[in-house]
Every structure is written in C-alpha cells, then in structure tokens.
Deep mutational scan, measured.
Amino acid sequence: YHPGVFRGDKWSCCHQKEKTGQGCDKTR
C-alpha cells in the first residue's frame, strides 16, 4: 500500500524507486 503517489522515479511517500515494491504502510 502506498499513501503517496508514484511520481517520476519514486513514491512520494517513502521514496522507494520500485513502483511494484511492497509499499510503505500496510496498515490500511
């Protein structure tokens, strides 16, 4: 789950560079 959006080459919430990554918050 990603609370942010994928912008450019990373997520705005956790700056992960993998769009298919696990995400940053799994509580939702």
Rank of each mutant, 00 (worst) to 15 (best):
Y1V: 05
Y1K: 05
Y1I: 10
Y1C: 04
Y1N: 02
Y1L: 01
Y1F: 11
Y1Q: 04
Y1M: 09
Y1E: 14
Y1S: 08
Y1R: 12
Y1D: 00
Y1P: 00
Y1T: 08
Y1G: 09
Y1W: 01
Y1A: 01
Y1H: 09
H2N: 09
H2E: 00
H2Y: 01
H2G: 00
H2P: 00
H2L: 03
H2M: 00
H2V: 01
H2K: 01
H2F: 00
H2S: 01
H2R: 00
H2C: 00
H2I: 00
H2A: 00
H2Q: 00
H2T: 03
P3Y: 15
P3V: 05
P3N: 10
P3W: 06
P3C: 08
P3R: 08
P3A: 04
P3H: 04
P3S: 07
P3I: 09
P3D: 15
P3M: 12
P3G: 03
P3L: 12
P3K: 05
P3F: 10
P3E: 08
P3T: 14
G4C: 05
G4F: 07
G4S: 04
G4E: 07
G4V: 00
G4M: 04
G4D: 11
G4W: 01
G4K: 05
G4L: 00
G4A: 01
G4H: 01
G4Y: 05
G4Q: 06
G4P: 05
G4T: 04
G4R: 02
G4N: 04
V5W: 01
V5A: 13
V5F: 06
V5R: 10
V5H: 07
V5Q: 09
V5E: 14
V5M: 15
V5P: 03
V5G: 06
V5K: 15
V5N: 13
V5D: 13
V5L: 07
V5C: 07
V5I: 06
V5S: 13
V5T: 15
V5Y: 07
F6S: 07
F6C: 06
F6W: 14
F6P: 07
F6A: 07
F6G: 02
F6Q: 11
F6H: 09
F6D: 11
F6Y: 13
F6K: 05
F6E: 11
F6V: 06
F6M: 15
F6T: 11
F6I: 06
F6L: 08
F6N: 12
F6R: 04
R7H: 04
R7S: 08
R7K: 10
R7P: 00
R7E: 09
R7D: 05
R7F: 03
R7I: 12
R7C: 05
R7L: 03
R7Y: 03
R7A: 09
R7M: 07
R7Q: 11
R7W: 01
R7N: 11
R7V: 15
R7G: 07
R7T: 12
G8L: 09
G8R: 08
G8W: 01
G8Q: 15
G8S: 14
G8D: 14
G8M: 14
G8I: 06
G8N: 15
G8V: 05
G8E: 15
G8F: 06
G8Y: 06
G8C: 07
G8P: 11
G8H: 15
G8T: 11
G8K: 13
G8A: 10
D9C: 02
D9W: 06
D9G: 14
D9V: 03
D9H: 10
D9M: 03
D9F: 06
D9E: 15
D9T: 09
D9R: 12
D9Y: 04
D9P: 05
D9K: 10
D9S: 13
D9L: 07
D9I: 01
D9A: 10
D9Q: 14
K10W: 03
K10R: 09
K10M: 11
K10S: 01
K10Y: 03
K10P: 00
K10L: 03
K10Q: 11
K10F: 08
K10D: 09
K10T: 05
K10N: 08
K10H: 11
K10A: 09
K10E: 08
K10G: 12
K10V: 12
K10I: 03
K10C: 08
W11Y: 05
W11F: 09
W11N: 12
W11V: 01
W11S: 04
W11H: 04
W11P: 13
W11M: 09
W11C: 06
W11G: 06
W11L: 02
W11R: 03
W11E: 02
W11D: 07
W11K: 10
W11T: 09
W11I: 02
W11Q: 04
W11A: 11
S12N: 01
S12Q: 15
S12K: 10
S12P: 01
S12E: 02
S12R: 00
S12M: 05
S12D: 11
S12I: 01
S12F: 00
S12L: 02
S12W: 00
S12A: 01
S12Y: 02
S12G: 04
S12V: 02
S12C: 01
S12H: 02
S12T: 04
C13K: 00
C13N: 11
C13A: 02
C13I: 00
C13E: 03
C13G: 02
C13P: 08
C13W: 00
C13Q: 01
C13L: 01
C13H: 04
C13Y: 01
C13R: 02
C13S: 03
C13M: 12
C13D: 03
C13V: 03
C13T: 00
C14A: 02
C14Y: 05
C14E: 05
C14S: 05
C14H: 04
C14F: 03
C14Q: 07
C14T: 06
C14V: 02
C14D: 14
C14N: 03
C14P: 06
C14M: 06
C14W: 03
C14I: 01
C14G: 04
C14K: 08
C14R: 04
C14L: 00
H15R: 07
H15E: 13
H15A: 05
H15T: 14
H15S: 09
H15N: 06
H15L: 08
H15F: 14
H15P: 03
H15Y: 08
H15D: 15
H15I: 00
H15M: 15
H15C: 07
H15K: 02
H15V: 01
H15Q: 11
H15W: 03
H15G: 10
Q16V: 09
Q16L: 08
Q16P: 01
Q16G: 13
Q16H: 04
Q16W: 12
Q16I: 11
Q16R: 08
Q16M: 15
Q16A: 13
Q16E: 13
Q16C: 09
Q16T: 08
Q16N: 13
Q16D: 12
Q16S: 10
Q16F: 02
Q16Y: 04
Q16K: 13
K17W: 10
K17E: 13
K17C: 03
K17M: 15
K17R: 11
K17L: 07
K17A: 10
K17P: 13
K17G: 11
K17D: 14
K17V: 09
K17Y: 05
K17N: 08
K17S: 11
K17F: 06
K17I: 02
K17Q: 14
K17H: 13
K17T: 13
E18V: 08
E18T: 02
E18M: 14
E18D: 11
E18P: 05
E18G: 10
E18Y: 06
E18C: 06
E18R: 05
E18F: 05
E18N: 08
E18A: 09
E18I: 12
E18H: 01
E18L: 05
E18K: 02
E18W: 07
E18Q: 01
E18S: 10
K19L: 12
K19E: 15
K19C: 05
K19P: 04
K19V: 04
K19Y: 01
K19I: 05
K19A: 06
K19M: 14
K19G: 07
K19T: 13
K19W: 13
K19N: 15
K19R: 08
K19S: 15
T20L: 12
T20E: 10
T20Q: 11
T20M: 15
T20P: 03
T20A: 13
T20K: 10
T20H: 09
T20R: 10
T20F: 10
T20Y: 10
T20I: 10
T20D: 15
T20W: 07
T20S: 14
T20G: 12
T20V: 13
T20N: 15
T20C: 15
G21Y: 07
G21Q: 09
G21E: 09
G21S: 11
G21R: 03
G21P: 02
G21V: 11
G21I: 07
G21K: 05
G21W: 01
G21D: 13
G21M: 15
G21L: 07
G21H: 05
G21T: 10
G21N: 04
G21C: 13
G21F: 10
G21A: 14
Q22A: 06
Q22V: 10
Q22F: 02
Q22T: 07
Q22D: 03
Q22Y: 04
Q22N: 13
Q22M: 10
Q22I: 03
Q22G: 08
Q22K: 02
Q22H: 13
Q22S: 09
Q22L: 04
Q22P: 06
Q22R: 07
Q22W: 02
Q22E: 09
C24Q: 04
C24K: 00
C24S: 02
C24Y: 00
C24E: 08
C24R: 00
C24G: 06
C24F: 02
C24D: 06
C24H: 04
C24M: 09
C24L: 01
C24V: 02
C24W: 00
C24P: 03
C24A: 02
C24T: 00
C24N: 10
C24I: 02
D25N: 12
D25H: 04
D25W: 04
D25V: 14
D25E: 12
D25Y: 00
D25C: 07
D25L: 08
D25G: 12
D25K: 12
D25S: 11
D25I: 06
D25F: 12
D25A: 08
D25Q: 07
D25T: 09
D25R: 08
D25P: 09
K26T: 14
K26M: 15
K26D: 14
K26C: 03
K26V: 15
K26W: 08
K26R: 08
K26Y: 13
K26E: 05
K26G: 15
K26P: 14
K26N: 08
K26I: 10
K26Q: 15
K26F: 12
K26A: 06
K26S: 12
K26H: 04
K26L: 12
T27D: 07
T27M: 15
T27G: 12
T27W: 14
T27A: 14
T27S: 10
T27F: 05
T27V: 09
T27I: 11
T27Y: 06
T27N: 13
T27R: 13
T27E: 07
T27C: 14
T27H: 12
T27Q: 12
T27K: 10
T27P: 13
T27L: 11
R28W: 03
R28C: 14
R28N: 12
R28K: 11
R28H: 14
R28G: 12
R28M: 15
R28Y: 11
R28L: 13
R28E: 14
R28P: 14
R28D: 08
R28F: 11
R28S: 14
R28A: 14
R28Q: 14
R28T: 06
R28V: 12
R28I: 11
